[in-house]
Amino acid sequence: MVQFGQDVIGGLGFGAIYALAALGLVIIFKTSRLVNFAFGSMGTAVAMILWTLLSAVRLPLVAAWLLALVGAAVVGALTDEALLRRIEQAPSLIQITITLGLFIGIEGLVGVLWGYTPKPLPELTSGGSLRVGPYFLTPDQLLIVALTLVLAAALHFVLERTRLGLAMRAIAQDRDTAMLMGVPTRRTVALSWAWGVLLSGLAAILVAPAVSLSPTMMDQIAVFAFAAAVLGGFGSLAGAIVGGFIVGIVGNLISAYLSTNFQLTFIFLLIVAVLYVRPHGIFGSAAQSRQ
């Protein structure tokens, strides 16, 4: 029973990472109706920039973090402005191919610029594991879960209670009508890209201390985050969070009680099963699926 509990706790930590990355996917999808397959490699690039700011520029941790995340947001907005805006009317296949191309291109570029030697990123917190009864958890795990939940709540607030959120929801519902109603669609989509890449970068820099920083670090995490977004219902913020935690915990339990080699297989079987019962995902709606 202790092992089961510990596996669930372990799954929560990685689940929060999947959730954060899935949030980044969903927020871009909501406004641009585009699945950004490059989100993993973009996140890795942000983490590499952070590593440079810390190890070469020697900025203090907080300043480096802030600068890296601001950089992520700028890169996200510029990606939309310079590249994806030009293909917004293109068929889905072209858009998917472009983001897949970005994924491969950015990963290769990161490899060329920073090399493939694993690099350490410092943990956000210091000190060893905390003991709660028979269970252990690290301060970083706690922080990651808390940060994910706070960010999800903040995003929910922005979407539901602010003019920006209203604009995003309007664009998600009907972009052309939103534009006719005076919603600044271009700026709003660029902002969602900024948020999306920032969240991917945040996921990458939070997980890097545990797995070491390398150009391919986010490859498997991106797959699980995508699974989380699908499971939760693509387009739903709550779905991304719940999907992320489900994938994290179930994945860890499969590793512990079946085999690591079945982890991905069973996660996707779970998705098939959920989509069979709820074709739009756990929190998804038919409208989101049509988008």
């Binding site: 092992q3 510990q6 596996d7 372990g10 799954g11 498997q220 994290g248 860890n252």
Partner: peptide
């Protein structure tokens, strides 16, 4: 004895298994 896939990043379950 536990096998793993080279692309795996989360080893929490394996560590716990050895510990248990």
């Amino acid at each position: 004895a536990i096998s793993y896939d080279p692309s795996q990043v989360d080893f929490g379950a394996q560590a716990e298994k050895f510990k248990s």
